[in-house]
Amino acid sequence: MGLKSYLSGLFKGFYSLLVGLRVTNSYFFHPSRIVTQQYPENRKTLKMFERFKGEVILVHNENNEHRCTGCGICEMNCPNGSIEIISKMETGEDGKKRKAIDKHIYHLSMCTFCGLCVKSCPSKALAFGNEFEHAVFDRAKLDKVLNKEGSVLMKGVE
């Protein structure tokens, strides 16, 4: 190794280190570039994107009506068996007996958010909710009944 290459290697190496130091140093003196989000504090301003897949919900309107007919297509499409539908027979206003939903059970603990239930639902009853704080102390709490107490099928949905 010649003295020249020895020295040039030394200085080049040293310079490359200084270049690196300049980057980190500039970050230290520019705290405005910090990107940390203070999570529990910013809960109020924290807004998820509308398509964010937090959980599956059964959409209810203000009259406590939903669009689920209890057909069971979502149950069939779910790859993990995280949806169970318990249906009942109900007499409609026209006196005809038809299938209706009793309980739409959703096992959040098994759901992989593939979106097949929402996509396959023929009456657009299901949707993704933005709730993401799912931590609970009891696993049983992750088994949810999606249709609210006393809710009925929206008129005009077959």
């Binding site: 910090i34 990107v35 203070q38």
Partner: peptide
């Protein structure tokens, strides 16, 4: 704190 600031974080707070 120094490493946090370098790493665009807040560090212990």
């Amino acid at each position: 704190k120094v490493c946090a600031f370098i790493q665009v974080r807040l560090g212990p707070n």
